[in-house]
Design a protein around this nucleic acid. Structure first.
Length: 908
RNA sequence: GGGCUCAUAGCUCAGUUGGUUAGAGCGUUGCGUUGACAUCGCAAAGGUCAGAGGUUCAAGUCCUCUUGGGCCCACCA
C-alpha cells in the first residue's frame, strides 16, 4: 500500500482511471446468455450540444444505474450517441458561413450539407468527450448518430412502412410556420407564450349601405387582407338580419359575405369574427366548412405577398402598423384595446410562429397512440414519479397528427419521389385522395426505400426526390431499437446481421429511460409508439423523470440568461465525483434542482473525507489483512461492540441503499452513504478504535467496511473509489468489476446498535457538560455514571475506556444507585445520572439554568401526555401499541422529572 | 380556461403508508491545530411546518378554500 497525499486531488487521477476502464473494455456489453441484461439508451444529446448541468444530472443518474447493475452482475449496456438535431445544427452552420458572408442558398444544397458534415466531424464529438469527463460508462464502441447510414435505413423503413399502412399522408393544412427558420414545425415545436398585444376593432362597411359597418375584433389585423368572410352566431340578435349580406373588405375592396356558425362566441369582442382561412387553424376549419376561398397573403419569410396589394413586401408586423394607420385614416378603426395574446413561438429561434397554409406530410397518430396508452394504464411502463402518468395520458388521448416534413436541408430526406409526367397529367383532373392503393393514392407521388428508376405508373424516368427533410424526432423516436442496427438491411453479411438481431432481442426492451420532463411528448411518448409499432413491445419499463436544473433564483439555466454553472468548470475546480455527488444529493424525486456553486463544496468535502479516512486506515493497516474472511471471523461472535456495531450499521445502510436505488431515490441513497461514512464510520468508529488499532479483529473490520463502502459509493463517485481501491486492495482489478456487497441480514444486530447508542449518548452528554462548564479539551476530568440497570451497567463498564477516551476523562466510575452530594454537576440521561465533581471548576450557574429548562420541558410534555391518555376516545380508538407507547413514554418522563427535580433540589 | 408543482431553521432543501421530542447541509455562536482530514473536530443556538377551515383519538403529512412563487397543456378571434 502506498502513501496518500494529504488532500484528494481529482485532477491527478480522473483521466488516468477513465482511460484505464476504457482500455480494459469494462464499458462494453454484449449478448451474454449467462447474464441478465440491463440496458439504457442515452437521450442522445444534440451534436451541437455542450455539456450543461441538465446533461450532468441526467447522465450521472444513468451512470449510477448502469454501474450499480453492472456490479450486481447484469450485462449492463449504456448505449451512447448523438442526435443530428436538424434545425439547431443547420442554424449553427448557417451562422458559421454567415461569417464568410454566405447564405446556404449561395452554396447550394450539396455543398452546404458538405459543410454541415465537416462541422460535425470537427465539433460533433465535443459532447462525447465531455461525457467521458463526467465518468459516463457508455459502451462507446457502439456510439450512434441519427444520420448514420444504417440509422437512416431505419428511418426510411419506418416512413415507407407507415405510408403503406396509410398512416402517413400528405395534405394542405394550416401548420406552424417559423418565418425565420422558414420551415414547418410540429405543435410541440411551437410552445405558447403570452405576449402583450392589442385587440383591434375594425369596421367593415356593408356593400348595400357603406355608412353602416360590421365591427370585427382581431389581434392580427394584417391577416385581414386575406379575409374571405365574416362569421356571426346564428342566434345573435344583433346580426341576424345581416346574415347572407355582403361586406366590402377595406383596403383591398374585395367583397366578402356574412355567414353564420354556432361556434362563434357572442360574448367575445363584437360577436363578429373575421375569417382568414389561410392564416388561422380555426378560420381554416370554418373555411372548409363553408367552402370559403383560401387566400394566402404572406411569403414564407413573413413578408406580405402579391395578394396583399400595396402592402406587398412589408414584414408582417410592419404591415400591421401601416394597415392600422390606413384604417384609422379611413375612419375604419373603431378602437384598440390592450390584450394579452397567447402565441406560439419557434422553439429554436423564438420567432413568433405564423399559422400558415401549406402542403406537408403528416403521421396519423391516433392508431399509433392506442397501444402506448394501454401499456401505461396497465403498468407495463411506469413513470417515476407517478404524476407524469397523467400528463402523458392526457397528451396521448388528445393526440394530434404529427407534421413531419421540414423545409430545411440538414436531415433525413423524405423517401418521396415525384414523377413529373404523372403530376402534369393529373394536374387538372380531380383526383381522389382517398385511394387505399399506396401507388395511386397521390398521383405522381412515389414512396420508396430506394430511388425509383422509372415511374411504376407511366414508366417515365423524369423523377425527382422531395426537397424536404424529416423532423429530427422522426429519427429519434426509433432510438431504442435503431441503435442496435434495426432493420438489419444494411449488411449482406447474414451472420453479422443475425448477431445484431440476437443482441437486439437480448437488450430490448431497455430497462429504464432517464430524462427531463421537457421531452415527454417530443420523445418519450413517440418512442413508446414506435416501440409498439415496429418491435411489437414496449421500449423501456421505467421512465424516470428528473427535475429541471435551475439557478438559485429558480430560473432555468440557459446561455442567453447567462446564469449557467458550467459542469466542466465544477469538475475542474472540485472534481467529477464532487459534481456527481452534490448533484445527486439535491435531486429529490423529480423536483427541480436549484443550484448554486456552493453546493459543490459538500461533494468536494465528502470526497476529501473519504480520502483522509482511507489514508488513515491505510497508514494503520497490517499487510495481508485483506485475505481474512470476514464471515468466519464474525461467526466466532467474539467481536467487541464497536466492531460489531459498524458492521451492523454497514449492512443496515446497505439494506436501505438497495431499496433506494431500486426505487430511483438517488438523493436518499447519497444521504445515507454520507451519514454512514462521515458520522458513523469516521466520527465514531474510527475515533473509537484508534486507541487499539492493531487489534486483529479491528484490523479486519476496519478494512472490510471501508472496502465495502468503496464498492457501494462507486456508482456515485467512480473516480475516488477506484483510486483508493487500487491502493487499498491492490490485486490489480478495478473496482468497476467488483461484486456489489451481498446483504447479510445476520450481521445486522439491533441490540448492538442500541448498546452503542447508549455509549454515544453518554459521551455526548459528558462533552456537553464539559462545554457548559467550560472545561478545555486538553484538560482531563473525572466523571461518574450512576445506573441501576445491570445490563446497561455492564455495557458501559465494558466500554469505559472508550468513554474515557472520547470524553477526555481521567477517571470514570460506573456505579449503581445515584447518591446526592454537594458540589457536583449532574446530568440526567434517561435512567442514568452522569456526574462531574465541581472541584476547581466554574460554578454551576449555567447548569442550574439548564436544569430548570429541562424540568419545564419535561413538565409540559408530561401534561400533554396525561391529557392524551385521559382522553377516553384516544384510549379506545388508537391502536393498542400506540397507547402502550404513550404510557411508557409518560412513565419515562415522570421518572426523568423526578430525577431532575431531585438534582435541582440537591443543588440548593 | 384546464392541470401539475412548491411554500418546513437565516439560506438551500429532506420528511415514506397520519402516531413519541420535525431532520440534513450551508451559515451563525462558543471551544479546539502534537500525526487521517481546518475541504477538520467537539458542543450549542435557531422552527406556532404560508394562512383559514375541515376530517380524525391523533395532521407538517389527508380534504376544501385563500395568498404567493414556478411549470405544463389549451383553436376563443
Amino acid at each position: 500500500m502506498e502513501e496518500l497525499s494529504k488532500c484528494y486531488n481529482p485532477k491527478e487521477t480522473e483521466d488516468i482511471w477513465y482511460k484505464y476502464w476504457e482500455e480494459k473494455g469494462y464499458f462494453s456489453a454484449r449478448y451474454n446468455p449467462d447474464k441478465k441484461p440491463f440496458s439504457i439508451v442515452i437521450p442522445p444529446p444534440n451534436v451541437t450540444g455542450i455539456l450543461h448541468m441538465g446533461h450532468a444530472l441526467n447522465d450521472t443518474i444513468q451512470d449510477i444505474l448502469i454501474r450499480y447493475h453492472r456490479m450486481l452482475g447484469y450485462e449492463a449496456l449504456w448505449m451512447p450517441g448523438t442526435d443530428h438535431a436538424g434545425i439547431a445544427t443547420q442554424n449553427v452552420v448557417e451562422r458559421q458561413i454567415a461569417k464568410e458572408g454566405l447564405k446556404r442558398q449561395d452554396l447550394g444544397r450539396e455543398q452546404f450539407l458538405q459543410r454541415v458534415w465537416m462541422w460535425k466531424e470537427q465539433y460533433g464529438s465535443t459532447i462525447i468527450r465531455q461525457l467521458k469527463k463526467l465518468g459516463a460508462s457508455c459502451d462507446w464502441q457502439r456510439t450512434r448518430f441519427t444520420m448514420d447510414e444504417d440509422y437512416s435505413e431505419a428511418v426510411v423503413e419506418v416512413f415507407v412502412s407507415l405510408y403503406e399502412k396509410g398512416l402517413i399522408y400528405q395534405g394542405n393544412y394550416i401548420i406552424n410556420w417559423c418565418p425565420r427558420c422558414q420551415t414547418a414545425l410540429s405543435d410541440e415545436e411551437g410552445p405558447h407564450h403570452d405576449i402583450q398585444g392589442n385587440l383591434y376593432y375594425l369596421k367593415y362597411p356593408l356593400k348595400e349601405n357603406p355608412e353602416t359597418f360590421v365591427i370585427v375584433a382581431t389581434t392580427r389585423p394584417e391577416t385581414m387582407l386575406g379575409d374571405t368572410a365574416v362569421v356571426v352566431n346564428p342566434k345573435d340578435k344583433r346580426y341576424k338580419k345581416l346574415i347572407g349580406k355582403t361586406l366590402v373588405l377595406p383596403l383591398v375592396n374585395r367583397e366578402i359575405s356574412i355567414i353564420a356558425d354556432p361556434l362563434v362566441d357572442q360574448k367575445f369582442g363584437t360577436g363578429a369574427v373575421k375569417v382568414t382561412p389561410a392564416h388561422d387553424p380555426n378560420d381554416y376549419a370554418m373555411g372548409k366548412k363553408h367552402n370559403l376561398e383560401f387566400i394566402n397573403v404572406m411569403y414564407p419569410d413573413g413578408r406580405m405577398n402579391e395578394y396583399a396589394g400595396t402592402y406587398k413586401d412589408m414584414d408582417r408586423f410592419e404591415a400591421r402598423e401601416v394597415i392600422i394607420e390606413d384604417l384609422r385614416e379611413q375612419k375604419l378603426l373603431e378602437k384598440i384595446e390592450p390584450y394579452q395574446v397567447s402565441a406560439r413561438h419557434c422553439y429554436r429561434c423564438h420567432t413568433i410562429i405564423e399559422p400558415y397554409l401549406s402542403k406537408q406530410w403528416f403521421v396519423k397518430m391516433k392508431p399509433l397512440a392506442q397501444p402506448g396508452i394501454e401499456a401505461v394504464k396497465k403498468g407495463k411502463i411506469v413513470f417515476h414519479p407517478k404524476r407524469w402518468t397523467k400528463i402523458y395520458l392526457h397528451w396521448m388521448e388528445n393526440i394530434q397528427d404529427w407534421c413531419i416534413s421540414r423545409q430545411i436541408w440538414w436531415g433525413h430526406r423524405l423517401p418521396v419521389y415525384y414523377c413529373k409526367n404523372c403530376l402534369e397529367t393529373n394536374k387538372f383532373s380531380a383526383q381522389s385522395q382517398q385511394s387505399a392503393d399506396k401507388t395511386t393514392r397521390y398521383p405522381g407521388v412515389i414512396v420508396s426505400k430506394t430511388p425509383p428508376q422509372k415511374c411504376p405508373v407511366c414508366d417515365s424516368s423524369d423523377i425527382v426526390q422531395d426537397e424536404d427533410v424529416l423532423d429530427t424526432w422522426f429519427s429519434s423516436w426509433l432510438w431504442p431499437f435503431a441503435t442496435f442496427g434495426w432493420p438489419f438491411t444494411g449488411t449482406s453479411d447474414v451472420r453479422k446481421s443475425e448477431e445484431k438481431k440476437k443482441e437486439l432481442n437480448y437488450f430490448y426492451p431497455t430497462a429504464a429511460l432517464v430524462t427531463a420532463p421537457e421531452i415527454i411528448f417530443f420523445w418519450v411518448a413517440r418512442m413508446i409508439m414506435a416501440g409498439f409499432e415496429f418491435m411489437g413491445d414496449i421500449p423501456f419499463k421505467d421512465v424516470y423523470i428528473h427535475g429541471t436544473v435551475r439557478d438559485i433564483e429558480g430560473k432555468k439555466m440557459s446561455k442567453s440568461l447567462g446564469n449557467v454553472i458550467d459542469p466542466l468548470e465544477i469538475i475542474n475546480e472540485y472534481g467529477t465525483d464532487a459534481l456527481r455527488f452534490s448533484l445527486i444529493s439535491i435531486t429529490s424525486q423529480g423536483q427541480d434542482v436549484f443550484l448554486s456553486k456552493e453546493r459543490f463544496e459538500q461533494g468536494r468535502n465528502f470526497a476529501n473525507k473519504i480520502w483522509n479516512a482511507s489514508r488513515f486506515v491505510m497508514m494503520n493497516l497490517d499487510k495481508d489483512i485483506a485475505k481474512t474472511d470476514l464471515c468466519v471471523f464474525f461467526e466466532k461472535e467474539n467481536l467487541d461492540i464497536p466492531n460489531r456495531w459498524i458492521l451492523s450499521r454497514f449492512y443496515s445502510t446497505l439494506k436501505e441503499l438497495n431499496k433506494n436505488l431500486e426505487s430511483y431515490k438517488f438523493n436518499d441513497a447519497a444521504g445515507l452513504l454520507y451519514r454512514f461514512f462521515w458520522h458513523e464510520y469516521c466520527d465514531w468508529y474510527l475515533e473509537m478504535i484508534k486507541k487499539d488499532i492493531k487489534n486483529p479483529q479491528t484490523q479486519v473490520v476496519m478494512f472490510k467496511v471501508l472496502e465495502k463502502f468503496l464498492r457501494v459509493i462507486h456508482p456515485l463517485m467512480p473516480f475516488i473509489s477506484e483510486e483508493i481501491w487500487q491502493k487499498l486492495c491492490s490485486d490489480g482489478t478495478s473496482i468497476m468489476i467488483q461484486k456489489w456487497p451481498h446483504l447479510q441480514p445476520k450481521i445486522i444486530d439491533k441490540k448492538t446498535e442500541t448498546k452503542m447508542n447508549t455509549v454515544i449518548e453518554v459521551i455526548t452528554t459528558i462533552r456537553n457538560m464539559r462545554a457548559e462548564l467550560e472545561v478545555p479539551v486538553q484538560e482531563s476530568i473525572e466523571a461518574k455514571i450512576f445506573i441501576t440497570n445491570k445490563a446497561k451497567n455492564a455495557v458501559l463498564s465494558s466500554m469505559s475506556s472508550d468513554i474515557q477516551n472520547l470524553a477526555k476523562l481521567s477517571i470514570l466510575n460506573i456505579c449503581g444507585e445515584f447518591q446526592h452530594a454537594q458540589g457536583q454537576f449532574v446530568s440526567v440521561l434517561n435512567d442514568m445520572h452522569i456526574v462531574i465533581p465541581l472541584t476547581g471548576l466554574a460554578d454551576g450557574d449555567k447548569y442550574r439554568q439548564r436544569i430548570g429548562q429541562k424540568i419545564a420541558k419535561a413538565e409540559s410534555e408530561i401534561k400533554a401526555k396525561e391529557n392524551m391518555l385521559k382522553n377516553q376516545a384516544f384510549v379506545e380508538r388508537a391502536p393498542v401499541e400506540v397507547v402502550e407507547k404513550e404510557k411508557n413514554r409518560l412513565k419515562e418522563l415522570t421518572e426523568l422529572l423526578t430525577k431532575l427535580k431531585a438534582v435541582k433540589h440537591g443543588l440548593e
